[in-house]
Write a protein that binds this DNA or RNA. Structure first.
Length: 801
RNA sequence: GCCGGUGUGGCGGAACAGGCAGACGCCCGGGACUUAAAAUCCCGUGGGAUAAUAUCCCGUACCGGUUCGAACCCGGUCACCGGCACCA
């Protein structure tokens, strides 16, 4: 009989579906295990072979956990709000909701085709009002707690599309869609105060089992630094606050710089002698696109605030204040004390503008370059700090500042609050109304969800407002607080909103009274193992940790962290080694592979392709090798095994080794070597016929990787039940070892030959065996064995003189 | 510039923890089967010297070190990939 993969795969898919083999049980005594993959954005292109890699990997993990006796939750859903759908819909004059529905149907079909063991009864869809009702609810809770606020901030403005772009829509400084210039523009936006959680997001990383590069990237993104906040007095009498990580260098601060957006500029207009020059500089800085800012980043520019100076509180010097765009308005206090002797940027600026450079830490040559990395230096020219180390000086000056009321110890973060508004149609409406007399008022919970209106045109308006703004009927409403006329918020939430909590909904996806019941959340959360892309590390992964912590604080979820373990997969590249893309024409469609070679072959190959964490190029030839392997398995097991019930010590050892290796490799995500082990096992079975027990073990181990063929052969063999419901096999360590060991024999560290001795032989026996061999006897003849290094069951190294 | 990662055959990649480098697969070569081809099965396959499957030499980006022994540890150099990028 031939291996008819198409028939077999269809058959078992239907059986699993009708039996609900993979449903997560909301009751029962088994320990739970929550295995999660990032739910896809259902794009028009359909399932990509890149999706199959993490999905197959975690499907293998989920299947193994079930076999290990866990009650497994392995769900799937769709993150369906967002720009590509909206743009596609605009272009083709369709409604985004209809496009989404079609895309989800297609994705579902393709995912089912690959035999994933998802619990299909728990599917969530972020665009479903029954779902986004709770996304809105969480937003309202944040609003209630003061974590959602409106602020005027610079946003990306496309000069051609006349609309606001998200950061991720700006590619290389130009609009992703039309290629036109993008400039910054002040706009009032909804913001979420993720910065309130910065320290906890940082601290709690320590206790999590995330791969190291994820932790590092999140730490860098949060960007904690410590130093002091110091207030300088201006000659006008105002206080000018700065943040510095080097308060020890205060005696070397010879001028100050404020960002062009700094309030001091407007506030001091009355005393400025060069108002026009300052205004010009600020205006040109504001007009600069992000692109220009990066391009011109290195060349320092600036204008002095003539007529206004500051006083260095340590030296009493009167020092000038400059305005320059090398100081960012968004970090620290938006102003710095400049210490050109010990900061490369300040040094460059001081040289250009002829400002004094004072050395306060000895060890470098501040006339040649800034001596910035001066941890080993000693303080000089710094009054009471002289002679101290940098570290001691930091402590001393911070204490001094605090005593004098001039400053204090301060922690700063690079992390900024989350811009939560999008002027787009296809997103969750922000459930807020604006009332002239009451301000921003939350929509009452009873009115949730605030639905997206179905309308004719949802194209961008050109004014920078959301398309929703032009829908008078929807916008005009009454104030929930005073009953007067009010207007709905027309901004929608960003793509990241719905995905910030979706894993909670899987626990209880049909609940219409809560986002999920406390009982369900206790049962299933936190997620035990979450795999996803590195590109989400500082976006989705950080955002959802933030939301989860907030929900923990208000008593909705039982744990402060959502995911116990995080791993990440590498990309699948095209056959040419380039990133797969339509324009390059190197896209592999998983559907084609399934049709030609079967889902099991695709699953196997995508796991065999290479190191799971690294990117790997597709190879059409190598896929066939995996098909060949399954053919070999089929030929081995579709009839009665040649070995019958005959016991073979060699096979028993091979099977126990395979159980150990495959199990360990799945846990370590080394799927490629797990499959190599199975291939080796099958090769062994071709050399000497396996017994029924050997076949049984092989099929059990193969079942998570290639579930359809494993199930069919399991049935043919008449083992009873389903292969995927068998207990995961145990191995006996003693049985993985053979009776005799081959010991490598080295002379002076160079391999010469090998001898076979009983396992665990002692040094004398191995040495004797080695010396007895022709090769070593020849080399040692007439010489003395000066030293012997013996590694048990591995090798022996003889030093001969 | 900073942070992180990676450099191993013709190719994808193995090598638990400093102990036989190249598992497994692809490609390629040879053989069996076949009228023939495909498929399948078996054998070979890092480079070089050699009649040789004997033996020897070289070999894990490069240079040096530690060690009985280094792909692995240490110092330095180079290349590539990813992220951040005037963060005070």
């Amino acid at each position: 009989m031939k291996y008819e993969f198409a028939r077999i795969e269809r058959k078992w898919r239907d059986i699993w579906a009708s039996r609900k083999t993979y449903a997560a049980r909301d009751s029962g005594g088994k320990p739970k295990c929550y295995v999660l993959i990032e739910f896809p954005y259902p794009s028009g292109e359909g399932l990509h072979v890149g999706h199959a890699r993490p999905y197959t990997a975690m499907d293998i993990v989920a299947r193994k956990r079930r076999m290990q006796g866990y009650n497994v939750l392995f769900p799937m859903g769709f993150d369906a709000f967002g720009l590509p759908t909206e743009n596609y819909a605009i272009k083709n004059k369709l409604h985004p909701a209809d496009v989404t529905e079609k895309n989800i149907a297609r994705f579902t079909e393709q995912l089912k085709m690959l035999g994933y063991s998802f619990d299909w009864d728990r599917v969530v869809n972020t665009t479903d009002p029954e779902y986004y009702k709770w996304t809105q609810w969480i937003f309202l809770k944040m609003f209630e707690k003061g974590l959602a606020y409106k602020a005027s901030i610079p946003v990306n403005w496309c000069t051609s599309c006349k609309c606001v772009l998200a950061n991720e829509e700006v590619v290389g400084g130009v609009c992703e869609r039309c290629g036109s210039e993008v400039v910054r523009r002040e706009k009032s936006q909804w913001m979420l105060k993720i910065t309130d959680y910065a320290q906890r997001l940082l601290d709690d990383l320590d206790g999590l089992d995330y791969i190291e590069r994820v932790k590092t990237q999140q730490r860098n993104w949060i960007g904690r630094s410590t130093g002091a906040e110091i207030v300088f007095k201006t000659t006008r009498g105002d206080g000018l606050r700065v943040f510095t990580t080097r308060p020890d260098t205060l005696f070397g601060a010879t001028y100050m710089v404020v960002s062009p957006e700094h309030e001091l500029v407007k506030k001091s207009a009355d005393v400025l002698e060069n108002t026009a020059e300052v205004r010009d500089y600020c205006e040109s800085a504001a007009k600069k696109s992000d692109f220009e800012r990066t391009e011109m980043a290195r060349e320092k520019t600036g204008v002095r605030l003539a007529g206004l100076d500051a006083v260095n509180p340590a030296t009493g010097w009167r020092i000038p204040i400059y305005i320059s765009d090398y100081v960012l308005s968004t970090y620290g206090a938006g102003a710095i004390m400049a210490v050109p002797g010990h900061d490369a940027r300040d040094w460059e600026f001081a040289k250009k503008f002829g400002l004094p450079i004072v050395e306060v830490v000895s060890g470098g040559d501040v006339e040649k370059e800034a001596y910035a990395d001066c941890g080993a230096g000693t303080m000089v020219n710094s009054d009471f700090l002289n002679g101290l180390s940098v570290e001691a000086a930091k402590a001393a000056i911070t204490k001094w500042l605090a005593e004098k009321g001039l400053g204090e110890y301060k922690v700063n973060y690079k992390l900024r609050d989350w811009v939560f508004s999008r002027q787009r149609y296809w997103g969750e409406p922000i459930p807020i109304v604006y009332c002239e007399s009451c301000g921003y008022v939350a929509a009452p919970e009873s009115e949730l969800p605030v639905r997206l209106p179905k309308v004719e045109s949802y194209e961008t308006t050109g004014t920078g407002e959301s398309p929703l703004a032009s829908m008078g009927d929807w916008v005009n409403t009454t104030c929930p607080s005073c009953g007067g006329p009010a207007a709905r918020e027309t901004d929608t939430m960003p793509q990241w909103a719905g995905s910030s909590w979706y894993f909670l909904r899987y626990a209880d996806p049909r609940n219409d009274g809560e986002l999920a019941s406390g009982e369900a959340l206790h049962r299933w959360t936190p997620v035990d193992w979450y795999n996803g892309g590195m590109e989400h590390t500082t976006l989705h992964l950080l955002y959802s940790r933030f939301w989860h912590k907030f929900l923990y604080d208000i008593g909705v979820v039982p744990t402060p962290e959502p995911y116990l373990k995080r791993t990440s997969h590498g990309m699948i590249l095209g056959e040419d080694g380039q990133k797969m893309s339509k324009s390059r024409g190197n896209v592999i469609n998983p559907g084609d592979i399934v049709a030609e070679l079967g889902a099991d072959t695709l699953r196997l190959y995508i796991m065999f392709i290479g190191d799971f964490e690294k990117s790997a190029p597709w190879s059409t030839k190598a896929v066939k090798g995996c098909k060949r392997f399954l053919d070999r398995v089929w030929n081995l097991a579709e009839g009665q095994p040649g070995g019958g019930d005959v016991y073979s010590a060699a096979h028993e050892r091979a099977v126990h080794r395979a159980i150990k290796k495959v199990g360990g490799d799945i846990e370590a995500m080394k799927f490629n070597t797990a499959i190599a082990t199975l291939m080796t096992l099958v090769n062994d079975f071709y050399e000497a016929p396996p017994s029924r027990g050997d076949i049984r073990a092989l099929l059990t181990l193969l079942s998570p990787f290639a579930p359809h063929i494993a199930e069919e052969l399991w049935e043919i063999q008449g083992f009873g039940g389903l292969a995927c419901e068998q207990p995961w096999p145990e191995y006996d360590d003693a049985k993985t070892l053979g009776g005799d060991m081959e010991i490598a024999v080295q002379v002076g560290g160079k391999l010469k030959c090998a001898v076979t001795v009983p396992r665990d032989s002692g040094e004398e026996d191995v040495l004797a065996a080695a010396l007895a061999s022709d090769r070593i006897a020849g080399l040692a003849a007439g010489k003395e064995v000066a030293r012997v290094i013996y590694v048990k069951n591995k090798l022996i190294n003889l030093i001969i003189k």
